[in-house]
């Protein structure tokens, strides 16, 4: 297994390298640049800026310089937010996004798995239809709609929760709820269909024949076998969610990393585009390795090679 993990990490790093290279050249292919503004600075200023960021050198040289710094763990300095390093932007934004994202995934998992299981168990019954109706709604309704409704009702009308910021636990309720809706719905649907598969298996009938209790058969025997698709889905979902949601962070004004992903592209802040992308790639690779290990723990039949 150790050998397998080492191999996976090496492959993962190669992936990150390819992602970094592609991103570097793709972002430079997009028209525009970080120094464009409605008012053009003087020619001397532009020249100085270009020299400062090595834009006057060939792209290959710039790529080499960037990669050398990247290997040292230095993501560079933001071209827009003067004096702020990309490492600093990530260090400040990521924990915030990770808290919101992690919490919402945790809640989604805790709600989605039981209700998906329950729906499968009550297949075709009224309660199953109700659960699946809400799950479909949850998938179909985008998070900004949920956020807006939450804002109007709970902040505007009822005044229960503050509309922006993240200073008290109360501030977490609305953004986390808005962020939960989609994954909860998705997990419950995923759980239901994979549970239905498992419930039809021979070993479930055997368990029933042997007199295993309903609860025990469902949550001990069936759950372990049917949760694998959820775990597979959870890995990348976790990575995408903990780096922050642009929409949620913008609407609730959460100082997370999600906004930087999008705003850096709009403003052509090259180091921030690279930094956030490479960071997400690293996170995805790491989580996928963890997911593989979790597979093995959940289902000992899986061989990691």
């Amino acid at each position: 297994m150790t050998k397998y993990i080492i191999k996976r990490i090496a492959l993962g790093l190669l992936t990150v390298f390819i992602v970094a290279t592609l991103t570097f050249f793709l972002m430079r292919l997009v028209p525009g640049g970080p120094f464009l503004s409605e008012k053009t600075p003087s020619a001397a200023t532009l020249k100085a800026l270009e020299e400062k960021y090595h834009f006057n050198e060939p792209l290959s040289v710039q790529y080499r310089i960037y990669m050398e710094n990247l290997v040292k763990g230095d993501f560079g300095v933001s071209m827009k937010r003067k004096g702020t390093t990309v490492n600093d932007i990530i260090a400040k934004g990521f924990p915030v996004s990770a808290r919101i994202g992690g919490l919402s995934i945790l809640i989604s998992f805790c709600i989605g798995v039981p209700i998906g299981t329950y729906a499968a168990y009550k297949r075709g019954k009224f309660i199953d239809k109700i659960i699946m109706f809400f799950a479909t709604c949850g998938i179909a309704v985008p998070s900004f709609v949920v956020s807006t409704i939450l804002l109007i009702v709970f902040s505007g009308w009822l005044g229960w929760f503050p509309s922006f910021g993240l200073t008290t636990p109360l501030h977490y309720v609305m953004p986390v709820t808005a962020l939960c809706v989609y994954p909860t719905a998705y997990i419950s649907r995923l759980m239901r269909s994979s549970m239905l598969d498992v419930l039809g298996q021979d070993y479930m009938r055997t368990a029933k024949a042997k007199g295993v209790g309903q609860f025990s058969s469902l949550f001990k025997h069936a759950l372990r076998n049917s949760i694998l698709p959820v775990v597979t889905y959870l890995g990348p979902l976790l990575a995408y969610t903990v780096v922050g949601s642009f929409v949620i962070e913008k609407i609730f004004n959460i100082p997370g990393l999600g906004r930087d992903f999008i705003s850096s592209i709009t403003s052509r802040d090259y180091p921030v585009i690279m930094g956030t992308t490479v960071f997400l790639a690293l996170l995805l690779v790491a989580i996928n390795v963890v997911v593989d290990i979790v597979y093995k723990i959940i289902d000992p039949r899986i061989k990691l090679k």
């Binding site: 600075p41 200023t45 020249k47 100085a48």
Partner: peptide, 9 residues
């Protein structure tokens, strides 16, 4: 130029 201020003008 080292400061590279947009509003140098």
């Amino acid at each position: 130029p080292e400061t590279a201020a947009d509003y140098a003008y």
